[in-house]
Amino acid sequence: MISSHQNQKGSKLEVGISYVLASGVVASLVLMGAGILLFYWEFGNLAISEKKGMFLQEKNFFYFLYDLLWGGNFHGKALWTMTLGIVVLILTPYAWVVMSVLYFLKEKDFKFFLVTLLVSLILTLSLATH
C-alpha cells in the first residue's frame, strides 16, 4: 500500500516552506521594485547599464552580506535597495533548507535530517568558499 502522509495538503513542513518561499519572494520583489523606482529618482533614467558599479562582486556571500549591511561600500540608496532584494532572494531557498533540517530533527526523522543537513552543508560551503 502506498503511504502518502508526507504529501497530504497542508502538512506542517509544506505549509512552513510555502510561507518562507512566498514571504522571501514578496520581500525581495518589493525591495527590487523600490530599488528600480529609486534608480529612476537618483539617475533620471532606467537604462540597463554595463558600468562596473552595476555588477555585484565579492569573495564570498557572507563577506558580501557584511559589506552590504555594515560596510558602507554602496553608493546611493537605489543600488543598495536592489542589492538587498537580491540578497533576500538568495537567502530564501537557503532559509527553507535550514528550516527543513530543524523540522526533520524535531520530528526525529533522522534519515531526512541527514539528507537535508547534507544539502545545507553543500549550500553553505558554496556560499562561503566562492
Binding site: S28, L29, M32, L56, F61
Partner: peptide
C-alpha cells in the same frame, strides 16, 4: 542558489538586469 554564489565571486551579476528580470 549554488550556481549564483559562483557568479557572485566572478562579478557577472548585473543589478540593472537582475532586478527587472526577477520582478
Amino acid at each position: 542558489l549554488a550556481g549564483t554564489s559562483v557568479y557572485l565571486y566572478s562579478g557577472l551579476l548585473n543589478l540593472t538586469l537582475m532586478g527587472p528580470m526577477a520582478v
